[in-house]
Protein backbone atom coordinates (compact mmCIF):
# COMPACT_ATOMS: atom_id res chain seq x y z
CA UNK A 1 0.00 0.00 0.00
CA UNK A 2 2.81 2.38 0.96
CA UNK A 3 4.36 1.72 -2.39
CA UNK A 4 1.22 2.60 -4.34
CA UNK A 5 0.98 5.95 -2.56
CA UNK A 6 4.58 6.64 -3.47
CA UNK A 7 3.85 5.62 -7.06
CA UNK A 8 0.84 7.90 -7.41
CA UNK A 9 2.69 10.84 -5.89
CA UNK A 10 4.43 12.00 -9.07
CA UNK A 11 1.33 11.95 -11.34
CA UNK A 12 -0.63 13.69 -8.58
CA UNK A 13 1.90 16.53 -8.42
CA UNK A 14 1.89 16.72 -12.22
CA UNK A 15 -1.90 17.14 -12.30
CA UNK A 16 -1.68 19.91 -9.69
CA UNK A 17 0.96 21.70 -11.79
CA UNK A 18 -1.21 21.43 -14.91
CA UNK A 19 -4.22 22.84 -13.05
CA UNK A 20 -2.14 25.76 -11.74
CA UNK A 21 -0.89 26.54 -15.26
CA UNK A 22 -4.47 26.38 -16.55
CA UNK A 23 -5.71 28.68 -13.80
CA UNK A 24 -2.91 31.21 -14.34
CA UNK A 25 -3.30 31.12 -18.13
CA UNK A 26 -7.03 31.89 -18.04
CA UNK A 27 -6.41 34.82 -15.67
CA UNK A 28 -3.36 36.32 -17.38
CA UNK A 29 -4.56 35.86 -20.96
CA UNK A 30 -8.06 36.96 -19.95
CA UNK A 31 -9.76 34.07 -21.71
CA UNK A 32 -13.54 34.44 -21.69
CA UNK A 33 -15.27 31.85 -19.52
CA UNK A 34 -17.51 30.59 -22.33
CA UNK A 35 -14.31 29.61 -24.17
CA UNK A 36 -12.27 28.12 -21.34
CA UNK A 37 -13.37 28.50 -17.73
CA UNK A 38 -10.72 28.40 -15.01
CA UNK A 39 -10.48 25.28 -12.81
CA UNK A 40 -11.53 27.34 -9.79
CA UNK A 41 -14.75 28.36 -11.60
CA UNK A 42 -15.42 24.79 -12.64
CA UNK A 43 -15.02 23.46 -9.13
CA UNK A 44 -17.30 26.18 -7.78
CA UNK A 45 -19.91 25.22 -10.37
CA UNK A 46 -19.50 21.56 -9.41
CA UNK A 47 -20.59 22.35 -5.88
CA UNK A 48 -23.37 24.80 -6.66
CA UNK A 49 -24.96 22.71 -9.40
CA UNK A 50 -24.70 19.37 -7.58
CA UNK A 51 -28.32 19.35 -6.32
CA UNK A 52 -29.64 19.61 -9.87
CA UNK A 53 -26.80 17.65 -11.37
CA UNK A 54 -27.01 14.57 -9.21
CA UNK A 55 -30.10 13.10 -10.90
CA UNK A 56 -28.22 13.22 -14.22
CA UNK A 57 -25.19 11.63 -12.63
CA UNK A 58 -27.14 8.73 -11.16
CA UNK A 59 -29.17 8.23 -14.34
CA UNK A 60 -26.01 7.82 -16.37
CA UNK A 61 -24.43 5.59 -13.72
CA UNK A 62 -27.48 3.33 -13.71
CA UNK A 63 -27.56 3.15 -17.48
CA UNK A 64 -23.84 2.37 -17.69
CA UNK A 65 -24.02 -0.33 -14.99
CA UNK A 66 -27.00 -2.11 -16.54
CA UNK A 67 -25.51 -1.96 -20.03
CA UNK A 68 -22.12 -3.04 -18.74
CA UNK A 69 -23.47 -6.08 -16.89
CA UNK A 70 -25.56 -7.25 -19.83
CA UNK A 71 -22.75 -6.51 -22.29
CA UNK A 72 -20.13 -8.37 -20.27
CA UNK A 73 -22.39 -11.39 -19.65
CA UNK A 74 -23.33 -11.57 -23.28
CA UNK A 75 -19.71 -11.14 -24.38
CA UNK A 76 -18.49 -13.91 -22.07
CA UNK A 77 -21.25 -16.23 -23.22
CA UNK A 78 -20.50 -15.67 -26.89
CA UNK A 79 -16.76 -16.10 -26.29
CA UNK A 80 -17.36 -19.45 -24.58
CA UNK A 81 -19.61 -20.65 -27.39
CA UNK A 82 -17.07 -19.60 -30.01
CA UNK A 83 -14.32 -21.31 -28.02
CA UNK A 84 -16.25 -24.56 -27.75
CA UNK A 85 -17.13 -24.66 -31.44
CA UNK A 86 -14.04 -23.79 -33.46
CA UNK A 87 -16.03 -23.99 -36.73
CA UNK A 88 -18.39 -21.22 -35.67
CA UNK A 89 -15.43 -19.31 -34.30
CA UNK A 90 -13.64 -19.42 -37.65
CA UNK A 91 -16.76 -18.08 -39.35
CA UNK A 92 -17.62 -15.33 -36.90
CA UNK A 93 -14.24 -14.14 -35.62
CA UNK A 94 -13.28 -12.06 -38.71
CA UNK A 95 -16.73 -10.47 -38.62
CA UNK A 96 -16.21 -9.54 -35.00
CA UNK A 97 -12.91 -7.89 -35.78
CA UNK A 98 -14.45 -6.02 -38.69
CA UNK A 99 -17.38 -4.85 -36.61
CA UNK A 100 -14.93 -3.32 -34.15
CA UNK A 101 -13.94 -0.85 -36.83
CA UNK A 102 -17.43 0.66 -37.03
CA UNK A 103 -17.52 3.76 -34.83
CA UNK A 104 -20.48 3.33 -32.51
CA UNK A 105 -21.53 6.94 -33.04
CA UNK A 106 -22.53 6.17 -36.64
CA UNK A 107 -24.71 3.26 -35.52
CA UNK A 108 -26.51 5.26 -32.87
CA UNK A 109 -28.83 7.22 -35.21
CA UNK A 110 -29.88 3.92 -36.79
CA UNK A 111 -30.73 2.49 -33.39
CA UNK A 112 -32.85 5.54 -32.64
CA UNK A 113 -34.71 5.08 -35.94
CA UNK A 114 -35.33 1.42 -35.18
CA UNK A 115 -35.99 1.47 -31.46
CA UNK A 116 -37.01 5.04 -30.64
CA UNK A 117 -35.87 7.11 -27.68
CA UNK A 118 -36.59 4.72 -24.81
CA UNK A 119 -34.07 2.97 -22.63
CA UNK A 120 -33.64 0.01 -24.97
CA UNK A 121 -31.58 1.68 -27.73
CA UNK A 122 -29.36 3.24 -25.03
CA UNK A 123 -28.69 -0.08 -23.35
CA UNK A 124 -28.12 -1.51 -26.80
CA UNK A 125 -25.40 1.04 -27.58
CA UNK A 126 -23.64 0.21 -24.31
CA UNK A 127 -23.93 -3.53 -24.89
CA UNK A 128 -22.41 -3.04 -28.33
CA UNK A 129 -19.40 -1.13 -27.04
CA UNK A 130 -18.82 -3.42 -24.03
CA UNK A 131 -19.30 -6.65 -25.81
CA UNK A 132 -16.48 -6.63 -28.36
CA UNK A 133 -13.52 -6.05 -26.05
CA UNK A 134 -14.82 -8.86 -23.81
CA UNK A 135 -15.24 -11.35 -26.63
CA UNK A 136 -11.88 -10.60 -28.18
CA UNK A 137 -9.99 -10.59 -24.87
CA UNK A 138 -11.65 -13.81 -23.68
CA UNK A 139 -11.05 -15.64 -26.95
CA UNK A 140 -7.42 -14.54 -27.01
CA UNK A 141 -6.98 -15.50 -23.37
CA UNK A 142 -8.44 -18.95 -23.97
CA UNK A 143 -6.37 -19.43 -27.11
CA UNK A 144 -3.14 -18.61 -25.30
CA UNK A 145 -3.44 -21.47 -22.83
CA UNK A 146 0.03 -22.68 -21.93
CA UNK A 147 0.87 -25.71 -24.07
CA UNK A 148 3.04 -27.07 -21.31
CA UNK A 149 0.19 -27.15 -18.79
CA UNK A 150 -2.18 -28.47 -21.45
CA UNK A 151 0.23 -31.32 -22.14
CA UNK A 152 0.30 -32.19 -18.45
CA UNK A 153 -3.50 -32.16 -18.20
CA UNK A 154 -3.87 -34.42 -21.24
CA UNK A 155 -1.24 -36.87 -20.08
CA UNK A 156 -2.79 -36.96 -16.62
CA UNK A 157 -6.09 -37.92 -18.24
CA UNK A 158 -8.10 -34.76 -17.56
CA UNK A 159 -11.53 -34.57 -19.17
CA UNK A 160 -12.48 -31.70 -21.48
CA UNK A 161 -14.54 -30.19 -18.68
CA UNK A 162 -11.65 -30.42 -16.24
CA UNK A 163 -9.30 -28.90 -18.78
CA UNK A 164 -11.68 -26.00 -19.24
CA UNK A 165 -12.41 -25.25 -15.60
CA UNK A 166 -9.06 -26.08 -14.08
CA UNK A 167 -6.78 -24.80 -16.83
CA UNK A 168 -8.23 -22.75 -19.67
CA UNK A 169 -10.59 -20.52 -17.69
CA UNK A 170 -8.23 -19.60 -14.83
CA UNK A 171 -5.46 -19.11 -17.38
CA UNK A 172 -7.61 -16.71 -19.39
CA UNK A 173 -8.79 -14.82 -16.33
CA UNK A 174 -6.27 -11.98 -16.47
CA UNK A 175 -6.95 -11.50 -20.20
CA UNK A 176 -10.69 -11.49 -19.49
CA UNK A 177 -10.14 -8.83 -16.85
CA UNK A 178 -8.23 -6.58 -19.21
CA UNK A 179 -11.24 -6.88 -21.54
CA UNK A 180 -13.59 -6.06 -18.68
CA UNK A 181 -11.55 -2.99 -17.74
CA UNK A 182 -11.79 -1.65 -21.29
CA UNK A 183 -15.51 -2.47 -21.34
CA UNK A 184 -16.06 -0.61 -18.07
CA UNK A 185 -14.71 2.69 -19.40
CA UNK A 186 -16.47 2.12 -22.73
CA UNK A 187 -19.75 1.58 -20.94
CA UNK A 188 -19.66 5.09 -19.47
CA UNK A 189 -18.74 6.52 -22.85
CA UNK A 190 -21.55 4.51 -24.48
CA UNK A 191 -24.04 5.77 -21.91
CA UNK A 192 -23.11 9.41 -22.51
CA UNK A 193 -23.19 9.05 -26.30
CA UNK A 194 -26.58 7.37 -26.14
CA UNK A 195 -27.89 10.25 -24.05
CA UNK A 196 -26.67 12.79 -26.59
CA UNK A 197 -29.08 11.27 -29.05
CA UNK A 198 -32.11 11.96 -26.95
CA UNK A 199 -32.91 11.51 -23.30
CA UNK A 200 -34.79 13.24 -20.54
CA UNK A 201 -32.07 12.68 -17.95
CA UNK A 202 -28.38 11.92 -17.79
CA UNK A 203 -25.00 13.58 -18.09
CA UNK A 204 -25.14 13.33 -21.89
CA UNK A 205 -28.31 15.40 -21.90
CA UNK A 206 -26.82 17.82 -19.37
CA UNK A 207 -23.79 18.28 -21.60
CA UNK A 208 -25.82 19.03 -24.73
CA UNK A 209 -27.98 21.54 -22.81
CA UNK A 210 -24.93 23.21 -21.28
CA UNK A 211 -23.20 23.33 -24.65
CA UNK A 212 -26.13 24.93 -26.47
CA UNK A 213 -26.35 27.67 -23.83
CA UNK A 214 -22.57 28.23 -23.87
CA UNK A 215 -22.25 27.15 -20.23
CA UNK A 216 -18.80 25.77 -20.85
CA UNK A 217 -18.16 25.51 -17.12
CA UNK A 218 -21.06 23.01 -16.91
CA UNK A 219 -19.68 21.02 -19.82
CA UNK A 220 -16.50 20.71 -17.79
CA UNK A 221 -18.47 19.72 -14.71
CA UNK A 222 -19.99 16.87 -16.70
CA UNK A 223 -16.58 15.89 -18.02
CA UNK A 224 -15.11 15.77 -14.52
CA UNK A 225 -17.94 13.59 -13.25
CA UNK A 226 -17.70 11.28 -16.25
CA UNK A 227 -14.01 10.86 -15.51
CA UNK A 228 -14.74 10.16 -11.86
CA UNK A 229 -17.35 7.59 -12.81
CA UNK A 230 -14.93 5.82 -15.17
CA UNK A 231 -12.28 5.85 -12.46
CA UNK A 232 -14.72 4.36 -9.94
CA UNK A 233 -15.67 1.55 -12.31
CA UNK A 234 -12.05 0.88 -13.07
CA UNK A 235 -11.07 0.73 -9.41
CA UNK A 236 -13.89 -1.64 -8.49
CA UNK A 237 -12.89 -4.00 -11.28
CA UNK A 238 -9.25 -3.76 -10.29
CA UNK A 239 -10.19 -4.77 -6.75
CA UNK A 240 -12.23 -7.74 -7.97
CA UNK A 241 -9.39 -8.76 -10.26
CA UNK A 242 -7.01 -8.62 -7.33
CA UNK A 243 -9.23 -11.03 -5.43
CA UNK A 244 -9.70 -13.48 -8.29
CA UNK A 245 -6.43 -13.56 -10.21
CA UNK A 246 -3.83 -15.28 -8.06
CA UNK A 247 -0.16 -15.98 -8.32
CA UNK A 248 0.36 -14.48 -11.75
CA UNK A 249 2.50 -11.58 -10.68
CA UNK A 250 6.06 -12.19 -11.68
CA UNK A 251 7.56 -12.87 -8.29
CA UNK A 252 11.23 -13.31 -7.66
CA UNK A 253 12.11 -16.68 -6.18
CA UNK A 254 11.86 -15.72 -2.51
CA UNK A 255 12.54 -19.26 -1.35
CA UNK A 256 15.65 -19.75 -3.49
Amino acid sequence: MGLSIKKSFAPFIFIIILLVIWELATRMLVIPTWLLPAPSLISKEMITSWPTFQQHFFATTQLAVIGFIIGVSFGLLLALILHMFPRIRATIYPLLIMSQNIPIIVLAPLLVIWFGFGIFPKIFVIILVCFFPIVIATLDGLAQTSQELMHYMQMAGASKRQIFFKLELPHALSAIFSGIKIAATYSVMGAVISEWLGANRGMGLYMTLAQSSFRTDRVFVAIVFIMLLCLCFFTIILLIEHQLVKGTKKGSAEYE
Binding site: K166, L167, G247
Partner: peptide, 15 residues
Protein backbone atom coordinates in the same frame (compact mmCIF):
# COMPACT_ATOMS: atom_id res chain seq x y z
CA UNK B 1 -5.06 -41.08 -17.51
CA UNK B 2 -3.77 -44.59 -16.81
CA UNK B 3 -0.47 -43.31 -15.48
CA UNK B 4 0.61 -40.45 -13.31
CA UNK B 5 2.93 -38.14 -15.08
CA UNK B 6 5.79 -35.79 -14.36
CA UNK B 7 6.82 -33.70 -17.36
CA UNK B 8 10.21 -32.26 -18.27
CA UNK B 9 9.30 -28.81 -16.99
CA UNK B 10 7.56 -28.62 -13.61
CA UNK B 11 4.30 -27.41 -15.25
CA UNK B 12 2.89 -26.09 -12.01
CA UNK B 13 -0.23 -23.96 -12.30
CA UNK B 14 0.77 -20.37 -11.49
CA UNK B 15 -2.58 -19.46 -9.92
Amino acid sequence: GQMSYMPQSPSLFPW
